[in-house]
Amino acid sequence: MPNDSFYFSIVRDPGTLGESAFSYFRAAAPAFRNSPSLDAFLASPSRFFRPGIRGNHYARNLQWFDFGLPEPGAPEEIPGILAGLERVFPLVLLAENFDESLVLLRHRLCWPPDSVDLFPHNSRGSAREVSPTQIRQLRAWNSLDWALYSHFNRSFWRHAERFGLRRLRREVAEIRQRRRVLAAKCLRGGGPVPAQAIPDGNLRPFQPPGGGKILGFALKEGLEGEERELCGRLAMPELPYKDLLERRQFGPNNGTAA
């Protein structure tokens, strides 16, 4: 990448991410697959978790792993590791404050307001409530992720204060109003629906084996032209969208034999 490239990422509280990962990666992580329930796993994680086994990176400190960070030899090494990471990623967004994150990101990238119009994807139809006890247990089990999240939560709100909290709240309200208008224009039912209720197969989200049912978006009938294209992009799940971007970047025959 060019030397002046701007890097950003996003983090989520491991107290809720851990429950989501247990559902979404149940089939992929032996530590989760071998546990009868999240409560059983949290009661004795070491009974099910073995480091180094393929797929078990989903089961502990997943965000630390995704950032490629080294295992600290001692707790006092963690602040230095995170300070180094922040120099690479000057803006790290918060999943819990996604709309606020979009505002800060848009201004850092000099994008127009409609560039952050979206429908929130990957919600579950049967997401369970995480109890305060489970949140504490998940943060303790994912202690490196909790340190990572805590660090970037503080840095995020420093960015927000420099931007201006009143200005931030105003722009968040504008994003949400545009989203409501687009949902009324584009979506059958005005919001997310189960995958089996989506007629267009290209708009059905991936359903993880053994995981919760992931909701998607069904378009209204009668949309045409630019309106149909806009609504279709907003409703498109990430895997088909990735394929679309790859075709745009590398051409329609990318990955096929010449």
Rank of each mutant, 00 (worst) to 15 (best):
Val193Trp: 10
Val193Thr: 14
Pro194Ile: 07
Ala195Phe: 10
Ala195Ser: 13
Gln196Gly: 09
Gln196Arg: 08
Ala197Val: 07
Ala197Tyr: 05
Ala197Thr: 11
Ile198Leu: 01
Pro199Asn: 08
Asp200Cys: 13
Asp200Asn: 12
Gly201Val: 13
Gly201Pro: 08
Gly201Tyr: 06
Asn202Tyr: 06
Asn202Trp: 05
Asn202Gly: 14
Asn202Gln: 14
Arg204Trp: 12
Phe206His: 08
Phe206Asp: 10
Gln207Glu: 09
Gln207Asp: 09
Pro208Thr: 07
Pro208Phe: 03
Pro208Trp: 03
Pro209Gln: 02
Pro209Glu: 07
Gly210Lys: 09
Gly210His: 08
Gly212Ala: 11
Gly212Phe: 01
Lys213Arg: 13
Ile214Arg: 04
Leu215Val: 09
Leu215Thr: 05
Leu215Glu: 03
Gly216Trp: 04
Gly216Thr: 03
Gly216Glu: 03
Phe217Glu: 02
Ala218Cys: 06
Leu219Ala: 09
Leu219His: 03
Leu219Tyr: 07
Lys220Gly: 08
Lys220Asp: 09
Glu221Cys: 04
Glu221Asn: 10
Glu221Tyr: 02
Gly222Ser: 09
Gly222Ala: 10
Leu223Arg: 04
Leu223His: 07
Leu223Lys: 05
Glu224Arg: 06
Gly225Arg: 08
Glu226Ile: 05
Glu226Arg: 04
Glu226His: 02
Glu227Ala: 10
Glu227Met: 11
Arg228Trp: 11
Glu229Cys: 09
Leu230Gly: 08
Cys231Gly: 05
Gly232Lys: 14
Gly232Ser: 12
Arg233His: 14
Arg233Cys: 12
Arg233Trp: 13
Ala235Tyr: 00
Ala235Thr: 00
Ala235Leu: 04
Ala235Glu: 00
Ala235Trp: 03
Met236Gln: 07
Met236Trp: 01
Met236Ile: 08
Met236Thr: 10
Pro237Gln: 03
Pro237Ser: 01
Glu238Cys: 07
Leu239Lys: 04
Pro240Gly: 03
Pro240Glu: 05
Pro240Ser: 00
Tyr241Met: 11
Tyr241Gln: 06
Tyr241Asn: 03
Tyr241Val: 07
Lys242Met: 03
Lys242Ser: 00
Lys242Gln: 00
Asp243Ile: 05
Asp243Arg: 04
Asp243Leu: 06
Asp243Met: 01
Leu244Gly: 01
Leu245Ala: 13
Leu245Val: 15
Glu246Arg: 09
Glu246Leu: 15
Glu246Tyr: 09
Arg247Asp: 15
Arg247Gln: 14
Arg247Pro: 06
Gln249Pro: 01
Phe250Ser: 13
Phe250Asp: 12
Phe250Tyr: 15
Gly251Met: 10
Gly251Leu: 14
Gly251Phe: 14
Asn253Ala: 12
Asn254Leu: 15
Asn254His: 15
Asn254Tyr: 14
Gly255Tyr: 01
Gly255Met: 04
Gly255Lys: 03
Gly255Asp: 04
Thr256Leu: 15
Thr256Ser: 15
Thr256Asn: 15
Ala257Met: 13
Ala257Lys: 10
